[in-house]
Computed example of a mutant assay.
Amino acid sequence: MSTPRFVSLPPGVRRTTVETPRGPFAALEALPGSGVPERCPALLVPGLTGSKEDFLAVLHTLAASGRRVVAIDMRGQYESLGPDDASAYTRAALGFDIAAVMDALGPDPVHLVGHSFGGLVCREAVLAGAAPASLTLMSSGPSAVGGQAAAKARALRDAIPQLGMAEIWALTLEPGYLGRGIQREIVAFLKARTLGNSENGLVHMSEELLTAPDRVDELAKHCADTDLRTLVLYGEDDDVWDPRLQAAMAEGLDASRVVIPSAAHSPAWEAPETTAAALRDLWSDTERTLK
């Protein structure tokens, strides 16, 4: 679980709701200083146990280049409501949600960024027909997680039905955060986020993370056929998907690749300026070809 750099909102960022035919999605929105976007918008999608707040450190910087930037909670995450129905949390269903949010942010094409499990969801959206201006897979892999990351996802999936998130928070998560010296204000936010998640959503999304197939070849063909610009971005010390796997994925996709120094699995808050610069470069280059 990642820890946001900020709990309060920085200047120029506001809480809002994106309304879609598939339901409302809680969001953070940043606009350029003029208030008038002149470039394509961007949509940022968090990972399994994350939320829109994971992108707080980059939202204002990304919007300053002249665009509307929106980060959302996916269905069942934190402040976006989710049903108990397991079918709502498949990668495909969540991908349709992302496509609906992209449509709501139009009419200009949307730069799409998916972090971790959010990258797998964004991949599904694209392969199902969503047409972003560009696609960034941030700290996301070619298929299901393995190793310690898989063990953690299985533990979460199996513990929730037995204990519930309130008990998991009290027994393991809160003591861990406090033991690491994390500020109580941030711990309070993390508690609200943890307990705000749909428990069924976490169970089923964990299973989706554990069973995701390798679709690199399909995505590579799609990108080649549609000229979709793709970036694979990750921290040099990523401990969820091995950086070597992500490098191989970038090669298989014929995608650009940026490795963020001194970052692990959450470069958007571990190295926000470097991460924002890489995204701005991709987006600006892409927009020159769209004109």
Rank of each mutant, 00 (worst) to 15 (best):
V7Q: 09
L9R: 13
P11S: 13
G12P: 14
R14G: 04
T17H: 08
E19K: 14
T20M: 07
G23N: 09
A27Q: 07
A27K: 02
L28G: 01
E29L: 03
E29K: 01
E29T: 00
L31Q: 02
L31H: 01
G33V: 03
G33S: 09
G33E: 14
G35N: 11
V36C: 01
P37D: 02
E38K: 09
A42L: 01
L43F: 00
L44C: 04
G47I: 03
S51H: 11
F55T: 13
F55I: 13
L56V: 11
V58R: 05
L59H: 01
T61Y: 01
L62F: 08
S65F: 02
R68Y: 09
M74G: 05
Q77K: 01
Y78H: 04
S80H: 12
S80P: 00
P83Q: 02
P83S: 00
P83R: 05
D84L: 13
D85F: 02
A86H: 06
A86D: 11
A88W: 03
A88I: 00
Y89V: 07
T90Y: 00
L94K: 06
F96W: 09
A99G: 15
A104T: 09
P107F: 08
D108L: 12
P109C: 00
V110C: 03
L112V: 04
G114H: 01
L120G: 06
E124D: 15
G129N: 01
A131I: 00
P132D: 05
L135Y: 00
L137F: 03
S139F: 02
S140P: 03
S140E: 04
G141A: 00
P142S: 08
S143P: 01
A144N: 04
V145S: 07
G146Y: 06
A151G: 03
A151D: 09
A151F: 06
A153R: 11
A155G: 06
I160R: 01
M165L: 15
A170Y: 07
A170T: 13
L171F: 06
L178D: 04
Q183D: 15
Q183C: 10
F189W: 14
A192Q: 15
A192H: 06
T194I: 04
G196I: 12
N197L: 06
N197T: 03
E199P: 14
N200S: 14
N200G: 02
L202W: 10
V203E: 08
H204D: 10
M205E: 09
S206L: 09
E208T: 10
E208Q: 08
L209N: 13
R215S: 14
D217K: 15
A220Q: 12
K221H: 12
K221L: 15
K221M: 10
A224L: 08
A224F: 05
D225G: 07
T226L: 05
L228M: 07
R229D: 14
L231W: 01
G235E: 10
D238P: 08
V240K: 06
R244W: 03
L245C: 06
A247D: 07
A247V: 00
A247S: 12
M249G: 11
E251V: 06
G252V: 01
G252L: 04
L253Q: 14
L253Y: 13
A255R: 10
R257D: 03
V258D: 11
I260Y: 14
I260F: 11
P261S: 12
A264T: 12
A264I: 05
S266K: 08
P267R: 13
W269C: 12
E270T: 12
A271T: 12
T275V: 05
T275F: 12
A277P: 01
R280S: 12
D281N: 02
D281K: 08
